[in-house]
């Protein structure tokens, strides 16, 4: 009769010890990754692809939480407010980390100062595309046309204050041309109007118009990164055209943690994430959806974010972009 009781106590004691022991080792409970946009978008896809593999490496579930709304700022603010214990991470991108603060006075946080960068994942170029009926054949002709016909051209983007809009403004500023900005709600309606010749130009994320460019249904003027995209080697970089030298804009993604997260945890996560981003299946999935891997550790990533933010600041100030 005594034996079962003894056994139970031993089991309970062992259990108690192992819990105590686990509490010291990170991670001892599930980790949440906040995504600032709805399920189905590229941020969500990246977070889910990486989390699955990260979870295997850390031995704890890594769950994706979509906190969408207010152009991504709700999710970012939520991550900043979360306890800095390494159990809440943020998959951030340029919009909510760098641009929001510059264009929107009501955004209270500062993506540069209130978050600890962990690992940068990569970038995706944007592309300037033309409707089938848009006459100029290449970027040089397009710029000449715009100069000869001021206020004739319009360009579509997926909203005010998006990296796409900022790229358009930068093209205008560098080439000293004028084009009307026509904002859309997302890439879908924008491509409909473009394919139907309703609007002459659009700036899209490369992956949204890739199929149409490959199928020859859209004119591709150039990508916004200084080097050509591997998936479209025949399409020049906009920076190759006279007047647009040095043009360098991209969408980028990376993991962040709340500011005061212990350095040891940040380093550990970075180490694991770097490994995750070498896993063939992850690399394949990300590459297929248009992400160009560009892995950087915490220090490099912070420097990158600083550089991007000051670039955006110039564009926003020169074009006087303001949202609320």
């Amino acid at each position: 009769m005594k034996l079962p009781f003894f056994r139970t106590s031993v089991v309970l004691l062992t259990a108690a010890f192992s819990v105590a022991a686990q509490a010291d080792v990170y991670p001892s409970k599930p980790i949440t990754v906040i995504v600032c946009y709805s399920p189905g978008g590229s941020n969500d896809m990246i977070a889910r692809t990486v989390s699955e593999e990260l979870s295997k490496r850390l031995g704890q579930p890594v769950m994706v939480e979509n906190a969408a709304g207010a152009a991504g700022t709700i999710g970012a603010a939520k991550a900043i407010r979360s306890p800095a214990d390494g159990y809440t991470l943020l998959l951030g991108s340029g919009s909510e980390i760098s641009i929001a603060k510059l264009t929107t006075p009501s955004v209270k946080y500062d993506g540069q100062k209130d978050l600890a960068p962990i690992t940068m994942i990569g970038t995706q170029p944007m592309i300037l595309v033309g409707a089938p009926g848009t006459a100029p054949k290449n970027t040089a002709e397009l710029l000449a046309y715009a100069k000869a016909n001021p206020d004739k051209l319009s360009f579509a983007s997926s909203g005010v204050g998006t990296p796409l809009h900022l790229s358009g403004e930068l093209i205008k500023q560098k080439a000293k041309i004028s084009m009307e900005h026509v904002p859309y709600k997302g890439a879908g309606p924008m491509l409909t109007d473009l394919l139907g010749n309703q609007i002459p130009l659009a700036i899209t994320v490369l992956s949204s118009s890739l199929q149409h460019v490959k199928a020859g249904k859209l004119k591709a003027y150039g990508v916004t990164e200084p080097r050509r995209a591997a998936v479209l080697p025949d399409v020049p970089a906009l920076a190759e055209t006279k007047g647009l030298e040095g043009l360098d804009m991209s969408i980028w993604w990376g993991f962040f943690a709340p500011l005061k997260t212990p350095d040891a945890i940040v380093q550990r996560l970075n180490k694991e994430l770097v490994e995750v981003l070498k896993t063939p299946s992850v690399v394949q999935k990300l590459t297929e959806s248009g992400v160009v891997l560009s892995v950087r550790g915490p220090k490099d990533f912070a420097k990158f974010v600083d550089g991007e933010t000051s670039k955006y600041r110039q564009i926003v100030q020169a074009a006087n972009i303001r949202t609320e």
């Binding site: 709304g69 009501s106 005010v160 204050g161 949202t323």
Partner: peptide, 20 residues
Amino acid sequence: GTDVNSGLSRFTFEQPQIAE
């Protein structure tokens, strides 16, 4: 919510939940 054309918010009373 947010006006697509100007990016300004309307009737939101500064509530981020209805900003979109």
